[in-house]
């Protein structure tokens, strides 16, 4: 992994053009594939058409045994870029919608998603009381969506294909789910719920299980988003890699056709995963907002 990172300076597009004659065939193949894979990795350089720039590096901060490296990297850059995009477009849309009674253009586009998140995600999962958490869900949705989509444009990178990013998002979701549960039920009720409502003699078994249950939900969120965003890319790279593997132009048309198909699928998956992440988060938040009885029902009906 670290080795591939070091080779990541060249983009996949460049890689295909690397003349294979210069190096030994076996080595070249390895070299090119590692470059293809490196395309998905985080890196310290930012590529753009016609060159690349080295991102600013900061000395890592040591916090006890944890080393926090706040240096800019490709994924940090696209993370911030997504945030900027979301902020600019959302605020622009908000201003436009304030002026236009009938929304149009980007204001309309935003509203479609907002209405969807509100009516299809927040209201069914959390009820009318969940509307106050709508800004959180909307931000989560658009942030993830733009990060997913930025990976599909050339020279872009999918920040959500990095497990650190999805872990952090899942962490935020986890904090939010617990905070909502505590806020809506009260601490006593929240703790009582950790016992699973069984006889006290079962508590030594029940409490660890329930606590584990608290963590599995965001863990699943984290892995799901990460794996989905990686999966499409890996398939794409594998299809392009076929050309390199066979060292033949004949394979290229097939590869391209399949790549286009997979890319379309990825476009769909980008939306789908953003939706699923937000939907599940709101669902888990909704569990914390309901009374115990209905919560059990909801969990049963959903599993």
């Amino acid at each position: 992994m670290v080795d591939t990172l070091k080779h990541a300076a060249v983009s996949a597009a460049d890689t295909i053009h690397v003349p294979a004659a210069h190096v030994a065939a076996e080595h070249a193949e390895k070299f090119e594939f590692s470059h293809l894979l490196a395309h998905m990795q985080n890196s310290k350089t930012l590529e753009f058409p016609g060159g690349h720039i080295d991102l600013p590096q900061f000395p890592p901060i040591h916090l006890g045994s944890v080393t926090i490296d706040l240096s800019m990297s490709k994924h940090v850059f696209f993370l911030l870029l997504s945030a900027l995009f979301v902020a600019v477009f959302a605020i622009y849309a908000a201003n436009r919608n304030r002026k236009n009674i009938i929304p149009k253009g980007i204001g309309n586009l935003f509203e479609i998603f907002i209405v969807f998140i509100r009516d299809e995600v927040a209201l069914p999962n959390m009820g009318p009381g969940g509307l106050k958490y709508l800004p959180f869900l909307l931000t989560l949705f658009f942030f993830i969506l733009i990060m997913n989509l930025l990976g599909l444009i050339p020279y872009g990178a999918t920040s959500t294909a990095n497990i650190s990013v999805t872990a952090a998002l899942a962490f935020v979701a986890f904090i939010m789910i617990q905070a909502v549960a505590i806020r809506e039920q009260g601490v006593a009720h929240y703790l009582a719920h950790l016992t699973g409502g069984v006889h006290w003699s079962m508590w030594p078994i029940m409490i660890p299980v329930e606590i584990l249950g608290l963590f599995t939900k965001p863990f699943a969120l984290c892995i799901r988003l990460f794996a989905n965003m990686n999966g499409g890319h890996i398939v794409l790279l594998a299809l392009i890699g076929l050309v390199l593997l066979f060292r033949s132009v004949i394979v290229a048309p097939l590869s391209v056709v399949f790549s286009v198909g997979v890319l379309m699928l990825e476009l769909f998956v980008a939306f789908l995963q953003a939706y699923i992440f937000v939907m599940l988060t709101s669902l888990f938040m909704g569990f914390g907002m309901q009374s115990e009885h209905t919560e059990e029902d909801a969990e049963h009906s959903h599993s």
């Binding site: 985080n42 890592p60 944890v66 080393t67 926090i68 490296d69 706040l70 240096s71 990297s73 994924h75 940090v76 993370l79 911030l80 945030a83 979301v86 902020a87 959302a90 605020i91 849309a93 908000a94 907002i114 709508l134 800004p135 959180f136 909307l138 931000t139 989560l140 942030f143 920040s159 990095n162 650190s164 990013v165 872990a167 952090a168 998002l169 962490f171 935020v172």
Partner: peptide, 24 residues
């Protein structure tokens, strides 16, 4: 990568606060 996690959380929290007020 803890640094990236910190970046993500900070970015997200800032985004939530800013957008809640100015966009959503």
């Amino acid at each position: 990568n803890p640094g990236l996690m910190v970046w993500t959380v900070i970015t997200f929290v800032v985004l939530v606060i800013a957008l809640s007020k100015y966009a959503w």
